[in-house]
Write a protein that binds this DNA or RNA. Structure first.
Length: 308
RNA sequence: GCCUCGGUAGCUCAGCUGGUAGAGCAGCGGACUGAAAAUCCGCGUGUCGGUGGUUCAACUCCGCCCCGAGGCA
């Protein structure tokens, strides 16, 4: 059974710097588990590890997708599984680090994704039908082909309705019947970095101000000049979306800043929700450690004990 | 010093002629299988400034006090 270590937690909790120290002590390479750090030319707003940090420890799955290219969990999972295998064979420990719950889960629980060729075309078609006939019509249709899944989601959840209908149309089988997973595929150790809400929110505010000082607006301006707009998934990223709206004149500078902070807080809350239900996660309160080195040592010891 | 207006949720405020209070924002909880930093669902969290009084019953009416804003001196 392959070894797999992981560090998860909400945004701004300190995963990046901690993981680099941990990776050095346990001889690991880092596999990013972040749906936005995959994009090239989006560095400041996604809080990627700096080139200097990446020089210390090898980082995978960062910076390899253009912002106007499509990407998906399935691709992420496939690449990550391969990396976990390769690193283990090489005698290195793979250290999965990030805050994207779905990506994490898809790897750790080995979600089954089924082969599907086209997608955007079918999605566009259903989105068009929703525009013409309304959500109710489409939701009712979903209920007739996949009542189980329809009952699980909201009649307002357009993305999930469209996805379920897309799968049904392409496979002839209901989405709910195709969702499979397999737990316990790895010799696993997961650490969750935790901070009390007030402290985390303080760090979020601080970091947003820092990003703006370090040129987030310039970064978005450059992306915008390349023709990237809000229809792209990449540009829906926290910070990018708001700065874009600021550049378009829809938000004042202050509104933009406040909105980024608020949305980031909400995101952090959703991340806690996601990770809290995973009982395999060993939570560590960052504030209980005097410095990063102590914290990293504690984590390294936990990982060493758990997966060896 | 006098007069006026105001003091209700974390914030901004609503509450008719008395029946122990409700909106927006913020916040909190949850869901999540090829868009996931996306998307969606749910929840008022309150010594109604304080204190005495009238009343079966006071956020609501009356007295006094405290705090804030404005006006007159």
């Amino acid at each position: 059974m392959y070894k797999l270590a992981a560090i998860v937690g909400p945004t701004a909790v300190g995963k990046t710097s901690t993981s680099i120290k941990v990776a050095q002590t346990i001889d690991a390479e880092i596999i990013s588990c972040d749906s936005m750090q995959i994009y090239k030319d989006m560095n400041i707003g996604t809080a990627k590890a700096s080139p200097a940090e990446q020089a210390v420890v090898t980082h995978h799955l960062i910076d390899f997708v253009r912002p106007d290219e499509d990407f998906s969990v399935a691709q992420y999972q496939k690449m990550t599984k391969k990396l976990i295998c390769d690193l283990n064979e090489k005698g290195k420990t793979p250290l999965l680090v990030g805050g994207t719950g779905l990506y994490f889960q898809s790897v750790v629980d080995d979600y089954t994704f089924f082969p599907l060729e086209s997608r955007q075309k079918v999605r566009d078609q259903w989105n068009q039908i929703i525009e013409d006939k309304g959500m109710d019509f489409v939701y009712t249709h979903l209920r007739s082909v996949d009542p189980v899944y329809a009952a699980k989601i909201s009649a307002n959840d357009q993305k999930r309705i469209v996805r379920a209908l897309e799968v049904y149309e392409l496979t002839g089988e209901s989405f709910s019947s195709l969702q499979k997973k397999r737990e316990n595929t790895y010799n696993l150790a997961v650490v969750g970095l935790y901070l009390e809400r007030p402290e985390l929110y303080k760090r979020i505010d601080l970091r947003v101000d820092q990003m703006l000082r370090h040129g987030l607006i310039e970064e978005v301006k450059t992306l915008r000049e390349k023709g990237y707009d809000l229809t792209l998934n990449s540009m829906q990223a926290l910070g990018y979306k708001q700065v874009y709206n600021y550049l378009e004149g829809f938000l004042s500078r202050e509104q933009m800043t406040e909105e980024i902070k608020r949305e980031t807080r909400r995101y952090a809350k959703r991340q806690y929700t996601w990770f809290n239900k995973d009982k395999r996660i060993h939570w560590i309160n960052v504030q209980e450690y005097p410095n990063d080195d102590e914290l990293a040592r504690k984590i390294s010891v936990y990982i060493g004990r758990t997966i060896n």
